[in-house]
């Protein structure tokens, strides 16, 4: 499939696309520690990404994909995070302690 969208030139306004990409990256980075922030940033990335895609801006598709991943990971970890903490964390901590010896 060929991409018919024009290649970005120097003067093109890519603000929404970059906002989408940066919000998506931060959302994916933070899903483990702060899932709520991750979901919010994912929604920001998704909306900015869709708006940027309509205007054929750079990074729009990457922002949409990262935003979607960030929302899914965030919601999953809001639901299972506490269970994971209670059940799996002692095992992970024991393994980490074993690795140091």
């Amino acid at each position: 499939m060929t991409d018919t969208r024009p290649v970005a030139v120097g003067s093109q306004n890519n603000t929404l696309g970059i906002i989408s990409l940066v919000a998506g990256i931060i959302g994916v980075l933070l899903f483990l520690c702060c899932s709520y922030i991750s979901v919010v940033l994912g929604i920001v990335a998704l909306i900015c990404g869709i708006l940027a895609y309509q205007q054929k801006q750079q990074f729009a598709l990457a922002g949409i994909i990262l935003g979607a991943i960030s929302i899914v990971l965030g919601i999953v970890f809001i639901i299972v995070g506490q269970v994971l903490l209670r059940e799996l964390m002692p095992i992970i901590q024991r393994e980490l302690r074993m690795m140091q010896f």
Binding site: L32, C33, C34, L85, Q93
Partner: peptide, 13 residues
């Protein structure tokens, strides 16, 4: 924080 619990390191938040 799951990241703090798992690794003992602080996350940005």
């Amino acid at each position: 924080c799951l990241f703090l619990q798992a690794t003992g390191l602080l996350c940005p938040a």
